[in-house]
Write a protein that binds this DNA or RNA. Structure first.
Lengths: 221, 221
DNA sequence: TTTTGTCTTACGGAAAACCGTAAGACAAAA
DNA sequence: TTTTGTCTTACGGTTTTCCGTAAGACAAAA
């Protein structure tokens, strides 16, 4: 089993139960920090002293406070940690439940496991640790399903850009110019209109307001 | 100090740390349940057996699962609990950070304390329990401030209705009819336009899409 | 009751968005 | 190279929204 684990979690109560869970698993060394910057320091120092961590368990969102941080988000921490210590296993423990966001962690940050703060999270975390220790990914099947089901509609890059621009306050008729600047392909006003219609049709909406809220909630923009 | 406390929290890890925190406070009896319906049963039974709870600590959102519940939300539980046991103290322990929503709990459900799942939540919970035991409310000052600061703009009932209708897919030009049906006062098309302009102006927006997302995120609609 | 100021409504022109159709571009197949 | 089908773009008319102005309603003060 893992010998040395680092917990990065700013929420005190979550941190407490993480400690208890790892204690149950009889992990030799479990260190815990409340800030991303601290986590990175500990990882660096452990590596330097030739006693590297086996596993990092981290949250995604860290609340800003007086203690200003360089690394503001769990994803930043993961990226930097992998820089200094590529073999480090990473399990994300977060309340995030937007499939697109979670999927992104596996695809782009290559995390080893994801445990959502939810009903049986403590049990799931134990399972995740065992699974990752066995060199496998712990990716709840529900996520893959959810991506297929919920994201029944496949947003293209242009789609996301269009909705983002609307959300940023751009007028629809100006969007073609911006798309051309960014060298995105279907960029005529007609195409913008068409894409907006297709998106709304697919999701059962009639107004752009609904589309914007939907995309914001899904973490697409 | 409180003798008998009930915890209603579906998230296993949060439940674990709540138990530990109450254990630190040497509470005689702490029961914990994972569903609202169970919580209400326990409260009823305790009352019937003349051993009522002193304090309920509850989350707001409970994840639906196979185990279908009558009470789906913490607010439902609080309402029902107060019905059968009016003197019961209630502390809400949740991740909710929208001031308008939290304020609503104090105003309309008359809760005794609110502790947000955040950096020092375990410590804050202990403070909250002590404060509520002393017959005072535990309402983080930050909330009141935030309401004043963030909600720099005061939304009227009509404002909220207008944005809600847009979000529901109503065309702007049809909104006057609906406002008249609901007997809301400024209900002409001109007024709808004017209110939308005022809201956007106040919040630095130019498009309705931005306004809809803002109101959705703030929990206003 | 009259006056005054504010809020609401009505109206009309301009801008933007919507929607259908046709023309054009482009790539794959013949 | 030609053909075919699909995707993109251009265009024009209609609807909706936007925005300024003026008229009307209403309540408080004179």
């Amino acid at each position: 089993m893992f010998k040395k684990i680092l917990i990065a979690e700013d929420q005190q109560s979550a941190n407490i139960s993480l400690q208890k869970t790892l204690h149950d698993l009889q992990i030799e060394t479990t260190d815990y920090v409340y800030y991303c910057d601290h986590a990175l320091s500990w990882i660096k120092n452990a590596k330097r002293d030739d006693e590297p961590y086996d596993l990092l368990i981290t949250d995604l969102s860290f609340e800003p406070d007086n203690n200003t941080q360089v690394l503001e988000h769990g994803t930043d921490l993961i990226r930097e940690a992998r820089n200094v210590h590529p073999e480090l296993k990473v399990i994300v423990f977060s309340g995030e439940n937007r499939p697109s966001v979670i999927d992104d962690l596996f695809e782009n940050l290559n995390i080893d496991g994801y445990v959502r703060k939810a009903r049986h999270d403590a049990d799931h975390l134990k399972q995740a640790i065992h699974t990752v220790y066995g060199e496998k990914r712990y990716q709840p099947s529900a996520i893959k399903q959810a991506i297929r089901e919920e994201n029944s509609f496949e947003f293209t890059t242009v789609d996301i850009t269009i909705v983002s621009l609307l959300y940023q306050g751009e007028m629809q008729k100006n969007i073609p110019f911006i798309l051309k600047q960014r060298q995105l392909k279907p960029c005529s006003l007609s195409s913008v209109e068409k894409r907006l219609n297709i998106m709304k049709e697919a999701l059962g909406f009639v107004k752009n307001e609904q589309l914007a809220v939907y995309c914001k909630e899904k973490g697409l923009i």
